[in-house]
């Protein structure tokens, strides 16, 4: 039934959104490995990551309503409780308590390094979150690329960054050129990969230094310009390879 997981997902964490995107009373739509996810924060601050689909008639929960402690489906008003995903109310039969088996599919969800991380597997215990930086860091802009993860990683490898493979998540350490050469013209940046689907990847970024004011702005702008160029190059290469039937 709703608890069935036809696809076996790996026991690992993926960054799927930046924390400041998951604001109160909002529902964020994300995707990892082709699986759509609805991310929403309850009024106590807890972040939920659920399969983006009402178990009743399959409507995306992300077009529903976040009431602060429940998610309400837009189609028939069925409500699901924060944390458990348990259906708490079916308006068409208001006097009947919904069966225990009726619940939204929930995923592991945690917040760290400025990102919301999701683990799709139902394996226990869940893998530990990777240790990336200390307490001082700056979270960068996330960039969407129309290319599969394998292509993005291959491209970055040629850029001679250190690419971690096998050890989740897919990390890339890279020296991003800075327009404002406060750090000898470059800054060591950790790129985090979110494989959205077989054709799309999101690149998230973080630097191990807390910056404020104009320094932070300069860093964000440099990183933004660098990643935009990177994205264009990867997409151009992917297009060219596709044209050549590779």
């Amino acid at each position: 039934m709703s608890g069935e997981r036809p696809v076996q997902f790996p026991n690992r964490w993926f960054p799927v959104a930046r924390i400041e995107e998951v604001v109160a009373r909002h529902i964020v739509q994300a995707q990892v490995l082709g699986q759509e996810i609805a991310i929403w924060r309850d009024d106590t601050g807890f972040a939920n990551a659920w399969e983006n689909r009402c178990p009743h008639r399959g409507v995306r929960l992300s077009i529903g309503l976040n009431t602060g402690h429940e998610l309400r489906c837009q189609y028939h008003g069925w409500r699901y409780s924060s944390r458990s995903g348990q259906c708490s109310f079916i308006p068409a039969q208001p006097d009947r308590k919904p069966a225990n088996a009726i619940r939204a599919t929930t995923y592991g969800c945690t917040e760290q390094y400025g990102f919301v991380w999701v683990n799709l597997s139902n394996t226990q215990p869940t893998a530990p979150l990777p240790s990336l930086v200390g307490d001082s860091f700056t979270t960068l802009r996330s960039t969407h690329v129309d290319a599969p993860l394998s292509r993005v990683k291959a491209f970055l490898e040629r850029r001679r960054a250190s690419v971690t493979d096998g050890g989740p998540p897919d990390l890339v350490e890279i020296d991003v050129p800075m327009r404002d050469p406060a750090e000898n013209g470059t800054m060591r940046t950790t790129l985090l990969m979110q494989p959205m689907s077989d054709t799309q990847t999101v690149i998230h970024g973080i630097v191990a230094k807390a910056l404020v004011g104009n320094d932070r702005l300069a860093l964000l702008r440099s990183h933004d310009a660098y990643l935009t160029r990177l994205r264009d190059e990867i997409e151009n290469l992917a297009r060219r390879d596709d044209t050549h039937g590779r």
Partner: peptide
């Protein structure tokens, strides 16, 4: 229309256990 276009999967599952039903879904 926006409800219909946000149903996943788009094709209708004929196995009655694939999606949860309530009494009001007798027609469905």
């Amino acid at each position: 229309k926006p409800i219909l276009e946000n149903q996943l999967p788009k094709r209708l599952p004929l196995n009655l256990r694939t999606e949860v039903s309530a009494r009001a879904d007798a027609s469905s």
